[in-house]
């Protein structure tokens, strides 16, 4: 994912080059941009050779795989490949499960973020740390943990099975659970950060106008953090869409029920490399779209996740 972000970052300066004559010629635009860049470089002194060389290597390293992907995409057969039932099924399943996982994350993750940011209870700091564990946990380990909790013999799963007849592993619902487990922390962290940095005096103003805390949350806090909420949701969705390790561990790889795009790509690589490339392209496009949506938030200098 970070690779793709970098690609977008590099793409941006090109799109920002001012085009004085709106013509299709890149020629006139370039001289307009170049002298400025040169002048700026001179002010700071010459770029040190070691930095330029090492940076160039990093750049090539990050860009070449993407270029390789784009070069090898079977553009002519693309519509055909994407129209294949397995591919369409995987795409549909991915979009569906990622969207459900995001909705679930919003429904319970936003309240948790609010509790972490606003409510006062013992162990809050510890809880905040625990929630970020899935962020750094290898997704496969997450899948194993999910099996141990929600598997048929799992500490919760056995009761789900015995009492309600609900089985999560190796079902579409299991895919959603795996994706939500991995992606929800992204949303929580984004929303909690927004809540902490939001000016709480607006909530004071709301209270003096007679609003209860619930009304204040709905009508003041939530609208004010809407941009962060949207960004967190998009990030959560993208993470769910790309989820591989936890999904294959917890939900398996059954076409039509649990085989999402990343699993399909992995499998297709063995049998049909062209299909794998085409599917990868789709995921790349999705990633770039996500990046475009979040561009203003993240690609400003000095901003971090």
């Amino acid at each position: 994912m970070s690779r793709i972000f970098t690609a977008g970052r590099l793409r941006r300066p090109c799109s920002r080059v001012p085009a004085p004559s709106a013509g299709p010629a890149p020629g006139p635009a370039r001289p307009g941009g170049r002298p400025r860049g040169r002048a700026r470089r001179r002010i700071g002194g010459r770029v040190p050779v070691p930095l330029a060389a090492a940076g160039g290597i990093a750049l090539a390293f990050l860009l070449l795989p993407l270029a390789g992907l784009l070069v090898r995409v079977p553009w002519r057969d693309l519509p055909e490949l994407l129209a294949e039932p397995e591919v369409r099924e995987a795409l549909r399943l991915s979009l569906l499960t990622a969207s459900i996982a995001t909705v679930l994350s919003l429904a319970v993750g936003v309240p948790l973020a609010w509790l972490l940011a606003r409510a006062d209870f013992p162990g809050r700091g510890l809880l905040r740390a625990v929630i970020t564990v899935p962020l750094v946990l290898p997704p496969v380990v997450g899948g194993v943990a999910l099996l141990l909790a929600f598997g048929r013999r799992g500490i919760v799963g056995r009761y789900l099975d015995a009492w309600f007849g609900i089985t999560l592993p190796f079902t579409t619902a299991g895919v959603v659970v795996a994706e939500a487990f991995v992606a929800m922390p992204f949303l929580i962290v984004a929303v909690e950060g927004a809540l902490r940095s939001a000016d709480r005096r607006f909530e004071d103003a709301s209270a003096t106008l007679g609003a209860s805390r619930w009304v204040t949350f709905r009508r003041v806090t939530l609208p004010m953090i809407a941009p962060s909420l949207g960004a967190g949701a998009v990030l959560c969705w993208a993470r769910a869409l790309g989820e591989f390790g936890a999904t294959i561990t917890f939900a398996g790889n059954f076409p039509g029920t649990t085989q999402t795009m990343p699993l399909a790509v992995y499998l297709a690589l063995e049998t049909d490399p062209d299909a794998a490339t085409a599917l990868s392209l789709v995921l790349l496009v999705v990633a770039v779209v996500v990046l475009a949506l979040l561009r203003d938030r993240w690609l400003r200098p000095g901003t971090t996740l």
């Binding site: 005096r201 004071d204 103003a205 709301s206 209270a207 003096t208 106008l209 007679g210 805390r213 003041v220």
Partner: peptide, 15 residues
């Protein structure tokens, strides 16, 4: 929220 006290804040805090 139950005081019926109106407050005008220094920087207004209009939503």
């Amino acid at each position: 929220q139950r005081r019926t006290v109106g407050m005008v804040f220094q920087d207004y805090l209009l939503f």
